[in-house]
Design a protein around this nucleic acid. Structure first.
Lengths: 143, 143
DNA sequence: CTACACCCTGTATGCAGGTACAGGGTCAAG
DNA sequence: CTTGACCCTGTACCTGCATACAGGGTGTAG
């Protein structure tokens, strides 16, 4: 018999029960059907949805943005063009985030490599370009 | 003549003056030298540092994590091994973020493409896999 | 039937990350 | 030497995102 109570859902997704209700209020989760007693009954895939929300948050999306992302799957044929436009915009956001993270990754990778291969007398190299993704001039200040 | 007042710095970096002071308290910015009157005098590259902070925040790093990232450039030769370890850990964080964003990108890309190529009578396709980042890539999950 | 672990709504509280004064000093232009 | 735009410290307040009760109902094992 499919259907989760709020407690089962919360523990499967690794979130607090209150957080589930909070997401429902914020409309990141659809209002689920209820039992006669008023208990929420969630579909099994609500677990995936919750996990997606947590992942997306860790990537810097706000709950509002995540709601929009999730909203992209609920559209009717009439709104297809609008959905495509929103998806395209989100895609651009995601591309930008990936590019920025890749810059950070490159700099961190160089730092690790330089630290591994440094000659004993050399000081650990300064991570000069971390502070400015698109600029590169730097000197060091000792706090 | 190098050196910025807090107001100049804030407007160049596009942040609030109070935010600059807040970051100084949180030690994301070094305490700058002062004039005789007690005014802060920031080096020009503080602008880059502030911009980096904003970028990193948009990518889901907390201020504390950003402080650590920025701290990687201030090390002395004595702490090289420790710096390498921290950089390696951060690198793993960044890799994970990139991987998660790529999953989202793939799904969004498919959605856009499907919307573009759908036949007029077909309903706009449902983005069913958005709620579960990637069925294949999800057996273990660490946060 | 009662104990206990759940569920409900509603409101209050907490933490991170800012933002906004209050009350006061600095300084260049007019 | 006053005016206005800045700066200082300190503290209070706000928003987003939860999290924690309070006060009460539900349901099932013993």
């Amino acid at each position: 018999m499919p259907g989760l109570t709020i407690g089962e859902l919360a523990s499967r997704a690794g979130v607090n029960r209150e957080t589930v209700r909070y997401y429902e209020r914020r409309r990141l989760l659809a209002r689920p059907p209820r039992t006669m007693a008023g208990y929420r009954v969630f579909p099994d895939d609500a677990v995936d949805r919750l996990r997606f929300i947590r992942h997306a948050q860790a990537l810097g999306f706000t709950l509002e943005e995540i709601r929009e992302l999730l909203g992209l799957r609920l559209d009717e044929r009439s709104s297809c063009e609008q959905v495509r436009a929103r998806a395209t915009r989100k895609l651009a956001d995601v591309e930008a985030k990936i590019a920025a993270l890749k810059r950070i990754r490159r700099v961190l990778g160089r730092l690790v490599h330089a630290c591994e291969t440094r000659r004993p007398t050399a000081p650990c190299p300064i991570l000069e370009s971390l502070a400015a993704p698109d600029a590169r001039a730097r000197k060091e200040e000792v706090q």
